[in-house]
């Protein structure tokens, strides 16, 4: 099992260029501390909507890589988005799910299907171009570069547990400033 912060640091080190990164809840707070960028989008508004925002970005800018850091609880609230994304088939979308098995922001209660559901299996059957699953940091470090280079839509389950955590500023997440900064950053794409 990977520590989430360690996994995200490895991912940050493998990213080339300036992708849009769309992230959900606990992972979002870790990510914006680990790899700050005006192209980080964390304002999905309603739980589950992260994957739908990412699809919108991927379709809006087909030549720009979009990396989606979804949560397992979030994806369960929008499972249909797997099918919608697979049908839309954006080649520039990498859909990662940080699977910790709990609703971390709400008391760490277990998600339905914890330890039994296969998110990568559902993505594969939905029609993603390729699917991957990681639970070991060394293997993730070795292979994530190849995953990021693949033609999308790519899906990767990242089995992890809470590591070092970072400040959770929900005012920042839902306030207008971070969206305005993002809008300014993408204005000239």
């Amino acid at each position: 099992m990977m520590k989430r912060d360690e996994m995200l640091k490895v991912l940050a080190g493998k990213i080339a260029g300036d992708p849009i990164v769309v992230a959900a809840y606990s992972t979002a707070f870790d990510w914006i501390a680990i790899r700050p960028s005006p192209l980080n989008y964390i304002s999905s508004g309603a739980m589950g909507m992260t994957s739908s925002h990412a699809l919108g970005f991927a379709l809006a800018w087909p030549d720009r890589k979009v990396i989606l850091l979804d949560g397992d609880g979030s994806l369960l609230m929008n499972l249909g988005s797997l099918v919608t994304i697979a049908e839309a088939a954006p080649k520039n979308l990498i859909h990662c799910v940080a699977e910790n098995g709990v609703y971390e922001a709400n008391g760490s209660h277990a998600i339905p299907g914890r330890n039994t559901v296969s998110f990568a299996g559902m993505a594969q059957n939905a029609g993603y171009a390729s699917t991957h699953e990681f639970s070991d940091l060394a293997a993730f470090d070795q292979q994530v570069g190849d995953v990021l280079d693949r033609e999308g839509p790519v899906f990767a389950t990242l089995k992890c547990e809470r590591g070092e955590t970072y400040p959770k500023d929900y005012g920042l997440m839902h306030g207008p400033e971070i969206r305005e900064e993002f809008a300014k950053a993408v204005k000239d794409f």
Binding site: S44, G45, A46, G48, M49, T50, S51, S52, H53, A54, L55, G56, F57, A58, L59, A60, W61, N78, G80, S81, V83, T84, F182, A183, V186, F189
Partner: peptide, 16 residues
């Protein structure tokens, strides 16, 4: 698949 998806997708598109 479900209507709320459309809000997220449309929001994403709107930035472009």
């Amino acid at each position: 698949c479900k209507e709320d998806e459309a809000l997220g997708i449309s929001a994403g598109l709107s930035y472009s």
